[in-house]
Write a protein that binds this DNA or RNA. Sequence first.
DNA 1: TATATTTACTTTAACGTTAACTTTAAGGTT
DNA 2: AACCTTAAAGTTAACGTTAAAGTAAATATA
Lengths: 332, 332
Amino acid sequence: MPTTQKDIAAKLNVSIMTVSKALKGHPDISAKTRKRVEDTAREMNYTVNVVARSLVQKRTHTIGVIVPDISELYYAEIVRGIEMVFRQHQYNILLIDSENDPDIELDAIQTLLEKRVDGLIFGPTEKTSRYIDLLKTVSIPYILINNTPKALHCDSISIDRRHGSMLSVSHLLSSGYEDIYFLYTFKHLEQSQHSINGCYDAFDQFNLPREALKLVYCENRDLETFYNKTLESVQYNNKKTGVYAWDDEMAVGVYRALVEKGFSIPDQVGLVGFDDIRISKYLPKSLTTIFCPKFEMGKKCAERLLQQLLSEQPLETEKIMMALKLIKRETT
Amino acid sequence: MPTTQKDIAAKLNVSIMTVSKALKGHPDISAKTRKRVEDTAREMNYTVNVVARSLVQKRTHTIGVIVPDISELYYAEIVRGIEMVFRQHQYNILLIDSENDPDIELDAIQTLLEKRVDGLIFGPTEKTSRYIDLLKTVSIPYILINNTPKALHCDSISIDRRHGSMLSVSHLLSSGYEDIYFLYTFKHLEQSQHSINGCYDAFDQFNLPREALKLVYCENRDLETFYNKTLESVQYNNKKTGVYAWDDEMAVGVYRALVEKGFSIPDQVGLVGFDDIRISKYLPKSLTTIFCPKFEMGKKCAERLLQQLLSEQPLETEKIMMALKLIKRETT
DNA sequence: TATATTTACTTTAACGTTAACTTTAAGGTT
DNA sequence: AACCTTAAAGTTAACGTTAAAGTAAATATA
């Protein structure tokens, strides 16, 4: 069993409070006593029991973070940003991977509330789900990532997928690609609809009929699916064809399929991804993509939550939108 | 403030213990009373305070996990495995990213101990460091990932980098590649030396002098460094050249550099990676690599720690070694 | 019918820490 | 000398829960 303040107090023949105060450098305690306490604490390998402290202070200095899949580079980068900022402010994060499953997600929120996290950051799997009712009962600050159900009047942080998609498709259209494909996934998420709307925005700008956009739904976000869907769906009919893929990782599968179909890139077919993951710049044909500041997004998200934690009265609800930008490379 | 058992007890005019027992389904409580308690709890949005429970039970059902960089796919996959298994056993993980910094790492261990995690999983940044002394004082079970300092007699789980490197280089040599380059990083880590030894093992097998291995040290694990080092260092002198890269992500940078230098792959130059990340199979030339079961490693690691947590007497120290295998693809 | 057992609770104390208040003794003022 | 101040402690109670032991009434046993 770990050493407690009681043990130290007994050894030094002082009260527990003296030990407690000495260890936090309280001015009540004389330098001499403080030194004796500190030395004894070290000697006995004392580490404060934060569980007990949390109970008294009603703050755990712990933040709950729920993401749909931590092995997606996208979330991994966000989590890195979140963790970094909180760590620098003496908070830790309890991480739960919801496996894109609304049931796990709901349990996760419940568990984190039971563990009395001081705040919650939450990347939902669905636009609407039972989690909304649960969140309504919650008394700690929380932020949603990339999804803002109308039913919840809460803080959120999102990438501007709609704008990103507009940039992507505009770029394709203005580069002379006429037939435009959008390979997308996650039908049930807001971001999915936003993306499609962004494509439409670009079509509107170019006075093209929206029906001309070729939407290809990929039921899973994995390379095999995107690869196969590309093989099946993407045609080249003597018009330059532009393909916009859900994200950079999926674009790797798309690219391979395009090459296998014998299309020359970027002459016949142009490809745009989304994210700007680390490898995109170093692919044999470096990938044109929409840069998405994932790490910064994580940081900003954490900073906002910290603000909430430190402020006494509840702050105004804020919807943060991360700006994106086009990175033109060799695939267009 | 959240509802407590006390509040429920007051409302129902019963003792706190009745509430406590009713909520955990203790047989002492009549069905009728239990129902009343449960209903009232729901009505008042009661959630148990796990902080208080942890204090009494001296277990937090929380595991500390420290990794050098959560945005490395390698660690992200391991963490996913760890989190999944623990979640299924009602544990949560406190995740800390040490940013490859021994100071942060040391703080992280201290913090996790203070938060009274029930166990610790730890991917060290260095072979030896001050963390060793700290771990020696620790009374909870812990497992090290990919590093097993002799000074610590503890559980560990590692990928068999040496064997993997041997497989990689043997494959290159037996495929007719004569000049072998190994682009590596993390000099200060055990895994780094193991890898080099694995290359030597292959050279020994083929009766080649170890000096013939061309070691290229990359001071940072990033694509730019690997790309530049490849441009600078890798030559082709009318002998088929084999390049073995530290991991698949870095191999993308290497590949691009090789192509830019005008080498034809796999005819003049062969390339082998390490990890088998998701994109490797779908690169334009699919990447020959050493498959590394990261997710399984995370799961196994968690299962082992669970074993320790559940067993009364301390178990024998175990060094788990994850087997690797060669995946032959188009770059060799 | 007296005694043992069971059911359904209640009481007490503890987990380790800290906030808020109180005490004691020394030193300083007038 | 009587009073006030200050330094350096100590005491008490609380945070929310649970383990363990206690109790009273109802039921079963002989």
